[in-house]
Design a protein around this nucleic acid. Structure first.
Lengths: 152, 152
DNA sequence: CTGAAATGCTTGACGATCTCGACCGAAATC
DNA sequence: GATTTCGGTCGAGATCGTCAAGCATTTCAG
């Protein structure tokens, strides 16, 4: 479904999404229209979800990040989920197996803000919060290397 | 440090990093060279960390994601951190306060792969794994809205 | 108060880039 | 073995980005 050329293109684009078609074409050994067509299809198929820009939260004043585990009280699951989605400071949220129903990432500008946000959930769920001290690995895509055999 | 124009530009670029200078200029009411200059400085200052492309892990065969909490055994912290960094399937890792030292995101193609990777850490750390069932909020930047007052 | 320097913007022209249509060749289909 | 389809190249026209020059506003020194 994805050939080496596609993977190659993705790899280059992950590093710099502004690489010109011409440059891409040169690096994978194709003409620019071909590259353009491949990109179009990668987008169409949803392989490329978006061209975006990564912003440093610090530059926006968000000096604190936390991982919050959230266990909604009985019957409150949907209300809690909706609440999380509405709070813009949640920068990521996964619904997981196990006792903790949600694991979320929170961007805040101060401990006070953190407290304020958690308060809004406190009466609907139990939370455990871990402050992020460092980021050994910042968001990166999974390995683009060769696909394993599908169902064959 | 960031004015409304900058925030506006960032907002547009987060949605689509390929927006042309001309289009950006039109939307914020400036000329393209001005926009170009602003972007240059946003990058220079590190506000824009990168132009990148968001890839669907599923398209690469990674059908499973997990959140893994990792508690290194005494004295093994650095070895564990290094190990995590080297395993490409870890798509994110934060060092946090509390009992769990690291919280990491793992992309795998099968439960078997998950087991294989956790095995590599098993003799150096305790781990708790939660399989991701759904993603109510996918990675998004913190609110770009007005900055709070700095140290004034 | 005056003048100079710095900042941030606009304009217009040039060069590079992207896009579109026409055409071609290999591989799969019937 | 002919035909269709898919993915590729080439070249022209349109679009876009970049650069230099110039202008207005603000800031600061004299």
């Amino acid at each position: 479904m994805l050939d080496d050329l596609d993977r190659n293109l993705l790899e280059i684009l992950v590093r710099d999404a502004r690489t010109s078609l011409k440059e891409l074409a040169a690096q994978v050994g194709l003409s620019s229209p071909s590259v353009s067509e491949r990109l179009r299809r990668l987008e169409e198929r949803g392989v490329i979800r978006a061209f975006t820009v990564e912003i440093d939260p610090l530059a926006l004043g968000y000096t604190l990040q936390a991982i919050v585990r959230i266990r909604p009280l009985p019957g409150k699951l949907h209300i809690v989920q909706k609440l999380i989605e509405e709070i813009a400071e949640f920068g990521e949220c996964d619904k997981v197996t196990g006792d903790d129903c949600f694991v979320a990432r929170l961007f805040v500008r101060s401990i006070g803000d953190l407290d304020g946000i958690l308060d809004r959930i406190a009466d609907k769920a139990e939370t455990s919060t871990a402050i992020i001290k460092a980021q050994p690995i910042r968001r990166r895509p999974p390995p683009l290397g060769a696909r394993s055999a599908p169902s064959s």
